[in-house]
């Protein structure tokens, strides 16, 4: 049995079907990436898994338990943590307070876990009292990931962790994601940066307008001509003109 399973998930915003029957699985210990253009339904997928959106059809199973009607705060308590698009750190809370929020339900391991997060992200340790809203994009991303780790998750849902960050910072973030995964945390990674994501992941899915258009081993997807053209930007001469 897979750790996380989506089966024929349909999500509507009013009359618009954002997801039109999405099925995917994530095995324990994997990094699985979900690729796709803007508006393909990647964020919708994550928000539905974490309970922020209600599907109108289909099933979500986490560790054998159905998630469909469980509210977001309970899903978080079950060990499934969502790092939302745009980081969403609490702007008027300090780094320490943001991290405390990650352990809102269970503060037993607060000290140990905070030390661990500071170990992963020394940048955060240096500015513990600083407000979340005053951090750089990269620091906010680190804080958002660290905050999710404070909940001791079994699965991390990461929504575009590289968005808007400098290449060097992107490298760091992806490296940390690798380390977190090596510690036993399963990762479902939504990315626009397909090359980086596929290099880290074991498998990948490609979403196009609310349906899974392609899926497979990450190494195979990296070699796929269509993926290379559309998502890796390795197209013909057109790109140079457009760029």
């Amino acid at each position: 049995m897979s750790l996380l399973e989506l089966d024929d998930l349909v999500v509507r915003y009013g009359a618009v079907e954002a997801l039109k029957g999405v099925s995917l699985t994530v095995e324990e210990g994997e990094i699985v990436t979900l690729l796709g253009a803007n508006g393909a339904g990647k964020t919708t997928t994550l928000r539905t898994i974490s309970g922020l959106l209600r599907p109108s059809r289909g099933a979500i199973t986490f560790d054998g338990q159905p998630l469909k009607n469980i509210p977001a705060h309970e899903v978080a308590a079950m060990g499934l943590r969502h790092v939302p698009e745009g980081r969403r750190v609490f702007p008027q809370m300090s780094i320490v307070e943001n991290l405390e929020m990650g352990a809102y339900r269970d503060r037993k391991h607060l000290k140990v876990d905070m030390e661990r997060v500071f170990g992963l992200f020394p940048r955060l340790a240096e500015r513990q009292k600083q407000d979340g809203g005053t951090l750089s994009g990269g620091e906010q991303q680190m804080l958002a990931i660290g905050r999710a780790l404070m909940g001791r998750p079994r699965v991390l849902l990461l929504d575009e962790p590289s968005m808007g960050l400098a290449p060097l910072v992107v490298q760091t973030i992806f490296q940390i994601i690798g380390e977190i995964n090596a510690d036993g945390v399963t990762v479902l990674l939504v990315e626009q940066n397909a090359a980086q994501a596929l290099r880290r992941a074991s498998r990948g899915y490609v979403l196009e307008t609310g349906t899974i258009a392609m899926q497979g081993e990450a190494s195979a997807l990296l070699q796929d001509d269509r993926i290379r053209q559309v998502y890796l930007g390795e197209s013909t001469g057109d790109e140079a003109q457009a760029g």
Partner: peptide, 13 residues
């Protein structure tokens, strides 16, 4: 500050 994100932290809004 951000009620959606609060619920992702396990806060019962």
């Amino acid at each position: 500050q951000d009620s959606d994100t609060a619920s992702l932290m396990g806060v019962n809004v």
